[in-house]
């Protein structure tokens, strides 16, 4: 297993956000996390990369318990792409992507040609070739999102955790980014992707994990998702069908159950 969480409970100041959650991720798999706002998707991702203390349970990454790994060692195994973040300071795109190399440098290590090649490759992968000298605070929301993705790619980890990586993208770039994530999966990386767009999840994921109020209520293949499950998760009626071989889900207007 690339990553496995057992009986995971996490909370902020006593208030539990995740309750007794189990999740396993095999290498070369893409799991989509779906669920309403506040259901604990971001908290789960933060916990999986060691940003939050666990109240209960354990996480094992590449066979090593998370608690036994140093921060730097962990950052070489798992990368996080946070929710659309805004940069206030005028760092250049190159400078931001190279921050992803930090876990691989020693205390006084210098960035070498190899690091720069990795950063350039990551920028190319997200379709931002030639953006290196642009300033991040002058980019569009979608470009910023792809820069943070490139920064995570430059970390060269086996596991990637992505928090709504397509939330600020137009449909064309959503397709590009999901195609990139699928390519990464082919390369053997494991990915956990929190998403709001059910159809994007159904189209790309190997498995879909549905979270509600901090619990994992269902983990299934995309073709096993039906209207009833979606209603239970999101609280509105859904039509689920197939169109040219792909599962498609549409919420019905004005029907909240």
């Amino acid at each position: 297993m690339a990553l496995s969480a057992k009986n995971l409970s996490v909370g902020y100041g006593g208030r539990p956000v995740l309750r007794h959650l189990d999740l396993e991720l095999a290498p070369g798999r893409l799991v989509a996390l779906l669920g309403p706002n506040g259901c604990g998707k971001s908290t789960l991702l933060a916990a999986l990369c060691g940003l939050l203390p666990l109240q209960e349970g354990s996480i094992v990454i590449d066979g090593a318990p998370l608690a036994s790994l140093s921060r730097l060692a962990l950052a070489r195994k798992v990368a996080l792409v946070p929710q659309a973040s805004a940069f206030t300071l005028p760092f250049s795109v190159d400078e931001v992507v190279l921050m992803g190399r930090y876990p691989h440098l020693g205390r006084f290590g210098r960035l070498g040609p190899e690091d720069r090649a990795i950063a350039a490759e990551a920028l190319k992968a997200v379709g931002l070739e030639g953006f290196g000298t642009r300033l991040v605070n002058a980019l569009s929301g979608g470009e910023v999102q792809r820069v943070t993705l490139a920064r995570a790619l430059a970390q060269k980890t086996g596991t990637l955790l992505l928090d709504e990586p397509t939330s600020a993208l137009d449909p064309g770039h959503v397709v590009d980014v999901m195609a990139l994530l699928e390519r990464l999966r082919e390369d053997g990386k494991s990915l956990v992707v929190a998403l709001h767009d059910v159809n994007v999840a159904l189209a790309s994921a190997d498995a879909v994990a549905f979270l509600k109020e901090g619990s994992l209520i269902r983990l299934c293949r995309p073709d096993e998702v039906d209207g009833e499950l979606l209603r239970e998760v999101y609280g509105v009626e859904w039509r689920v069908g197939r169109w040219q071989g792909q599962a498609v889900a549409l919420p019905k207007r004005g029907v909240r159950s």
């Binding site: 990369c49 940003l51 950052a75 206030t88 400078e95 931001v96 921050m99 876990p103 006084f108």
Partner: peptide, 22 residues
């Protein structure tokens, strides 16, 4: 200078711990 990369990561507003910064 001994911590300039860490300062960059913090100043960029990222979650520094996710890059291994204490």
């Amino acid at each position: 200078l001994s911590r300039h990369r860490e300062l960059d990561i913090i100043a960029s507003g990222g979650r520094a711990a996710a890059f291994g910064v204490d």
